[in-house]
Design a protein around this nucleic acid. Structure first.
Length: 340
DNA sequence: TAACCGTGGCG
DNA sequence: TCGCCAAGGTT
């Protein structure tokens, strides 16, 4: 079992020799930029985030710019990145920073964690990277490294396992060079201690790793118990008129909250009146499959089928490639593209 | 506690 | 091709 001090030294030394130091959000102490990167990186890989991060900063260079933006603008720049509650919370939090914190990003872990969308680990990361505080993080990378190195068994979704991981994370996090240490742990998990086929020959902790010693790498960390994925089937009503298409803003909570979609109906045996069936497809979410049957329809207000749906309609001039500044889910964008 | 919330890459 | 899951947080 590693002593915390030796562990820290090995990890920081690894960072100085092999760590990532030139990611777009590194080399700045701007808490806004660090916060933005941490939110975008939640459950999302680095390569996916980079172009979104650049676009977002070009449009909103400061937290005040973000606070003053419309929600459609914000959702537009987030379109395709997924987990859209992150964008809604980001916008809400920017307004909080502007109003309640007078534009100055909060500097204590507790105050940072009070922002919507910022949990314990993200707050720890921001406090360490932006303000050099000795705060611990516990993302998927750190969990994997600690679970293997110390033989912490079970799925991290279980409270007892999560508690043990946090205790170990707190114990191992140094009071000095915390930012380097935190970055090093994420680099180790992302580059060396990968989920499958870890590069143990490159790992500074391999001489004292529980999983390696016990030949239990595949068993650590514990996996989430898997369950059956339900399937939901819907119609998407595509109403074209004068080179425009009718879209509808989805409610703020639930899937694709705050984004614009085609009017949607649960599939029934009898399809609503339509001109033409387009190719159906299945969009796979992490927790269910969505079968979509797009239907070209005439005017919606004459058919009666739109009765339950509030016609907060919006015309998108897609035929001229003039995409409006609104948020669109990826499969909606694909259907729109296919119409051209 | 467990379900919910997106998308893309990888083995 | 398909299951898995990634710099998690909220309800």
């Amino acid at each position: 079992m590693w002593q915390a001090k030796d562990f820290q030294q090995k990890v920081i030394n690894y960072y100085r020799q092999h760590g990532r130091k030139h990611l777009p959000w590194q080399g700045t102490k701007d808490a806004y930029r660090i916060w933005l990167s941490e939110i975008m990186l939640q459950q999302t890989q680095v390569a996916t985030v980079i172009p979104y991060y650049q676009n977002f900063l070009d449009k909103f260079p400061t937290v005040t710019d973000l606070a003053e933006a419309s929600s459609d603008e914000v959702m537009h720049l987030w379109s395709g990145l997924g987990y859209y509650s992150r964008a809604r919370n980001l916008h809400k939090a920017a307004k909080m920073v502007a109003e309640e914190f007078n534009g100055d990003f909060p500097q204590t872990q507790e105050a940072i964690e009070s922002l919507p969308g910022v949990g314990r680990s993200t707050a720890g990361a921001i406090a360490a990277f932006a303000f050099d505080q000795p705060t611990a993080i516990l993302d998927g990378n750190v969990k994997r490294v600690l679970a293997r190195c110390y033989g912490i068994e079970g799925w991290a979704g279980k409270a007892s396992v999560l508690k043990a991981l946090w205790q170990r994370a707190e114990k191992n996090t140094p009071a000095q060079d915390t930012a380097q240490y935190n970055q090093a742990m994420m680099d180790l998990g992302a580059v060396v201690c990968t989920r499958s086929k870890p590069r143990c020959d490159q790992c500074p902790l391999s001489e004292n790793c529980y999983a390696l010693k016990q030949d239990a790498i595949a068993q650590l960390p514990g996996k989430k118990p898997k369950k059956a994925r339900p399937k939901r089937s819907v119609y998407w009503l595509i109403c074209l008129e004068n080179e425009q298409v009718l879209l509808q803003k989805r409610p703020p909570s639930g899937i694709w909250g705050g984004l614009w979609c085609f009017p949607e109906l649960e599939q029934t045996e009898q399809a609503p009146p339509h001109e033409q069936k387009l190719d159906s497809f299945i969009h796979k979410f992490s927790h269910y499959d969505l079968e979509v049957q797009p239907l070209l329809v005439k005017k919606l207000d004459n058919t009666g089928i739109m009765e339950p749906i509030e016609l907060e309609s919006f015309a998108l001039n897609f035929l001229q490639q003039k995409t409006a500044e609104i948020g669109l889910p990826t499969p909606v964008t694909k259907v729109l593209d296919s119409l051209n």
